[in-house]
């Protein structure tokens, strides 16, 4: 972590960048917040540990409007989001200085199933421990680092950054699950079971819009759900709307552009596995139009916005 701070300080002091976008120490080890640092002194509050799961690429849309370059720290998976935003002309590559930072899997405090957590040790970077020591009001306990990891890290896209100016720090393999296993499990259900599964999950939705607002693919200046002309603008109207429409529409709007960064599932206060929608689309796109990973590069034609004579006929498998 010190290495990152030193590098950021020297780039700031040399005037190569005007500000640094990273994570700032919170009250506890697990609540670091995304933050802009404008001076070397401010960087003393910089932190990078296992709990820095927040994907900073979306903040670069705003940062790109500011004077001068912004140094941004991107984890391997975050770099896919940045690339996708670049492709959509939502961020300015010239205004970004990207340090690809290593990642050993990201944790979420909500994945640590103990009451009264006072401190978690072993989440440091680069010295992440295999077992996290958790100090709680009700005694000390331990949990494997892997068990406290975000879902997305179990199906990590890999250790490589797809866009960067320089790299700092090591990453490690965290994959121990199949990316599409859960989607396949649902596909195998009967229509009644499928419907019951999604209804139960989506009935928890409180329509807070956290999934939309955190999503790097949701970068429209004016969202369709914010339109006053739309009957279900932004807030709750009827609970059935959440279950049936909002999430389907959202998933469809980001289909083919979603890099599967997993932020939607990370932030959902109700723990709805929203990535299951996005991943279904990704799986179908792979099957119907050939393997495609959004954000992996700037050249490959996106399957949903280009036509080839090999494209699947509409209505395949239905009607």
């Amino acid at each position: 972590m010190q290495e990152l701070i030193e590098r950021a300080k020297s780039l700031l002091e040399a005037g190569q960048v005007a500000r640094v976008l990273g994570w700032k120490k919170g009250e506890n080890v697990w609540d670091a917040e995304p933050a802009f640092f404008e001076s070397a002194d401010a960087l003393d509050a910089f932190v990078y540990n296992g709990f820095c799961g927040a994907n900073l690429s979306k903040y670069m849309i705003e940062a790109g409007k500011l004077e001068g370059k912004t140094l941004v720290f991107l984890k391997p998976c975050d770099s896919y989001s940045f690339n996708q935003l670049l492709r959509e002309h939502r961020v300015d590559r010239e205004k970004a200085y990207i340090i690809g930072v290593g990642c050993k899997g990201k944790l979420a405090i909500s994945k640590i199933p103990f009451d009264g957590i006072l401190n978690v040790s072993g989440a440091d970077y680069p010295a992440a421990a295999e077992m996290l020591k958790v100090e709680t009001l009700y005694g000390d306990v331990e949990i494997a680092y892997k068990e406290a990891m975000l879902e997305r890290c179990h199906v990590c896209k890999g250790k490589e950054h797809v866009v960067y100016d320089e790299l700092l720090g090591e990453s490690c393999d965290t994959v121990d699950a199949d990316r599409f296993a859960e989607v396949e499990r649902i596909e195998a259900m009967s229509p009644e079971e499928k419907f019951a599964f999604f209804q139960q999950e989506l009935s928890k939705c409180i329509r807070c819009n956290a999934c939309r607002n955190v999503c790097p693919a949701c970068s429209c200046r004016k969202c369709v759900f914010d339109s006053t002309a739309f009957d279900s603008a932004q807030k709750a109207n009827t609970t059935s709307f959440e279950e049936k429409m909002f999430h389907i529409i959202r998933a469809f709007h980001v289909a083919g552009r979603c890099t599967d960064c997993g932020e939607c599932s990370r932030v959902c206060p109700q723990g709805i596995p929203l990535h299951l929608f996005n991943r279904k689309f990704i799986k179908d796109i792979n099957a119907l139009y050939g393997e495609y990973q959004a954000g992996s590069d700037l050249e490959t034609k996106a399957p949903l916005t280009c036509f080839t004579t090999d494209d699947a006929e509409p209505g395949v498998g239905r009607g």
Partner: peptide
């Protein structure tokens, strides 16, 4: 405010937030 995503999570889980909007549904 800088990191705020402008979502409504804090207000919707809050036991005291009381602001509401009145709308018409066709």
């Amino acid at each position: 405010y800088k990191p705020c995503l402008a979502c409504g999570t804090c207000t919707f889980v809050c036991p005291t937030c009381q602001c509401y909007d009145i709308k018409d549904y066709n």
